[in-house]
C-alpha cells in the first residue's frame, strides 16, 4: 500500500520515549489557525517554492507545460494555482528552491527508513511515532506501517488530534503502545472560530480510547490569545481527571515558526498569536496539576 508522507524525521526526541523516527503523514482534519505546518493540511502532494534559495536560472520554465513559472524583473514568480504536481520542475531545480511536500511511498519504503535506526530504539526504549497533520486520515496506511513495526518488536506511538470517527482510531489501537492525544481547547467557540474541528467528537473519542486500555499522554498546545486562560486549561484538566489510562498531561507553548512555509505554499499568513511566557505556562501547569499528573519537558513531573 502507498501513502503520502510529508517528512520522516530521525533522531526525534520529543515524540515519545527514547530515540524515535517520526513519520509525518500528510493531511489533517482540523484547520488550526496557528498551525505551523500548513503543508500538512491536504493529503495530496503540493509544490513548495522557497524564493530565498532561487537563483533564477530559468530551468523550471523550460520543463513546465502549465505555465506555473515565470521570470519578471529578474524574479521568479510561481503561480501554484496552475500546478498539476507533475514534478518536472522539481527535478530540474538543483538548488532546492522547488520541492514537493508530500511524497508517495509504499509501507516497505517507509519501513526501510524506519529500520535504519532500529538499534537506537532498542538501546533507548524508543521506536516510531506516526504524526501529521492527522495520521488517522491515512488510517489504512498507518495500520500497515504499525503492523510491520510490531512484527519487528518496535515500540509504536500515534500522535493524533481525534477529529474523526472513532472506528478509524480503534482499528489502530491493537498495534499501538502509546497514544499522544492533543486536546487543543474545551470551549466550543474556540473550535468553531480557530480550530475548525468537532469538539464533542474529539473529547468523546478520547474517553472511548481510554476505555480500550492503552496508555495515553494528553497534550495541549497553549496559544496566546486562544486558550491560554485558567478557565480553558482547568476545563480540559477536569475532563481528563476521569481517565483511567492517562500517563500524564502536558502543556506545550505555541511557537510561531510557520511563516516561511505559508509563503512557500502561496498561502496567506495571518498570525496574531503569541507565545505565553514561562511564568504563564507554570501558572497554567499548576492549575492543571490540581486535577491530573502534569509533566514538563524540562523539570519532569510537577506533581505526583
Amino acid at each position: 500500500m502507498k501513502g503520502i508522507i510529508t517528512d520522516i524525521q530521525r533522531f526525534s526526541v520529543h515524540d515519545g520515549p527514547g530515540i524515535r523516527t517520526t513519520v509525518f503523514l500528510k493531511g489533517c482534519s482540523n484547520r488550526c489557525a496557528w498551525c505551523h505546518n500548513p503543508e500538512t493540511f491536504t493529503v495530496k502532494p503540493q509544490l513548495e517554492f522557497f524564493s530565498e534559495r532561487c537563483i533564477a536560472c530559468g530551468r523550471c520554465l523550460s520543463v513546465c507545460q502549465e505555465g506555473v513559472h515565470s521570470i519578471s524583473d529578474g524574479r521568479h514568480i510561481v503561480d501554484l494555482t496552475l500546478c498539476n504536481n507533475c514534478g518536472q520542475c522539481i527535478a530540474s531545480c538543483y538548488v532546492g528552491a522547488l520541492v514537493v511536500t508530500g511524497q508517495e511511498m509504499t509501507s516497505e519504503e517507509v519501513m526501510e527508513q524506519i529500520r535504519m535506526d532500529e538499534p537506537y530504539y532498542k538501546r533507548s526504549g524508543g521506536g516510531i511515532t506516526l504524526s501529521g497533520g492527522e495520521p488517522v486520515m491515512q488510517w489504512e496506511f498507518a495500520k500497515e506501517i504499525l503492523l510491520l513495526c510490531k512484527e519487528l518488536g518496535i515500540h509504536t506511538t500515534l500522535q493524533t488530534a481525534g477529529n474523526y470517527d472513532f472506528e478509524y482510531l480503534s482499528a489502530l489501537v491493537p498495534y499501538l503502545d502509546l497514544v499522544m492525544y492533543d486536546i487543543k481547547a474545551f470551549s466550543e467557540d474556540i473550535y468553531k472560530n480557530v480550530i475548525h474541528g468537532d469538539p464533542r467528537r474529539i473529547l468523546n473519542n478520547l474517553m472511548d480510547l481510554d476505555c480500550m486500555g492503552i496508555p495515553i499522554i494528553v497534550r495541549t498546545p497553549v496559544v496566546g490569545s486562544v486558550n491560554d486562560t485558567e478557565q480553558e486549561i482547568e476545563a480540559i484538566a477536569t475532563y481528563l481527571g476521569d481517565m483511567k489510562h492517562l500517563v500524564h498531561y502536558m502543556l506545550i507553548p505555541y511557537h510561531g515558526l510557520g511563516k516561511v512555509k505559508y509563503d512557500a505554499l502561496g498561502m496567506e499568513y495571518n498570525n496574531t498569536f503569541y507565545t505565553p511566557d514561562k511564568e504563564r505556562m507554570q501558572q497554567l501547569e499548576r492549575i492543571a496539576a490540581r486535577y491530573v499528573k502534569v509533566y514538563n519537558n524540562e523539570s519532569g513531573y510537577i506533581n505526583g
Binding site: F11, G18, I19, Y120, S124, G125, E298
Partner: peptide
Amino acid sequence: AQEMGGREIIKAYIKT
C-alpha cells in the same frame, strides 16, 4: 540537555 530524559538518550546514542 535541558530536557528530562536527554541524558539517557545521549547515553543510548553512544552505546549504540
